[in-house]
């Protein structure tokens, strides 16, 4: 009986660390993504970009492993039965955000869009807003697990940053279509801007669900 308790204690502590590591990965991803776009705008598909892109791929892979580990342990150890479904959905949502970061970074690598210098600052602003939005989503998600009252503060930040990123992306896309670029380039840049902005939208969706789960978690 004592051994069972020790083992349950150790397993709970391990899973707590795994969940924390998943949140760490998201925050790491936001930093790497910003750096990757900065490098791309300066150097295009350089070795430096290749390295950063590889780091992003590794983070995405690691977070996949962590997600699967959390999901299987929650079921195998029959933990948090009342909220298990919600937590699985939350972990899936977080993973979708990580995947989208990876997809966009990879798309830069494959398609090598030629972004005119005049749009660099706006694109960097958009990437910063989107990264901050995802970072706050990760912090809000962490708060869901251990500090429910602060969840609302971070959620509010996510909503504000998503709104700002929408405005920035709309401005940028308008500027692109108002320019004299070829239609094919306009379309390509438009898709890129759209996909970067989608990350913030996905983070916002994640927070919407999280706030519902939080109502259920309140005692």
């Amino acid at each position: 009986m004592f051994n069972v308790k020790i083992s349950l204690f150790a397993r709970t502590r391990d899973l707590e660390h795994t969940i924390d590591r998943l949140h760490d990965k998201i925050i790491e991803m936001t930093v790497e993504f910003r750096e990757a776009v900065d490098i791309y705008l300066k150097e295009k598909r350089s070795d430096n970009y290749r390295k950063t892109s590889k780091k992003i791929k590794t983070i995405e892979h690691d977070s996949d492993v962590l997600r699967r580990d959390i999901e299987s342990r929650l079921y195998e150890q029959n933990l948090i039965p009342d909220l298990r479904g919600n937590i699985l959905q939350l972990v899936e949502n977080l993973d979708r955000v990580v995947n989208l970061f990876d997809e966009v970074a990879h798309k830069f690598y494959i398609e090598q869009p030629d972004v005119p210098e005049v749009y660099h600052e706006q694109l960097k602003t958009l990437v910063k807003q989107v990264s901050d939005c995802a970072e706050n989503m990760a912090i809000a998600s962490r708060a869901f697990f251990r500090d429910l009252p602060t969840l609302r503060d971070y959620s509010q930040k996510v909503y504000l940053l998503e709104k700002q990123s929408d405005k920035t992306s709309a401005k940028l896309r308008k500027a692109i279509f108002d320019s004299d670029l070829e239609l094919a380039r306009k379309n390509q840049l438009n898709v890129f801007v759209h996909e970067v902005a989608d990350i913030a939208d996905l983070a916002e969706d994640c927070i919407d669900a999280l706030l519902i789960f939080a109502i259920k978690r309140e005692i």
Binding site: L8, F9, T12, L15, E16, I19, L79, I80, L83, I87, F144, F145, R146, D147, L148, P149, R217, I219
Partner: peptide, 16 residues
């Protein structure tokens, strides 16, 4: 409720 608010206990430990 007060204890949970002040302790910031992880959901897994609450479950435990």
């Amino acid at each position: 409720k007060k204890i949970l608010h002040c302790s910031k206990l992880h959901i897994l430990w609450q479950d435990f």
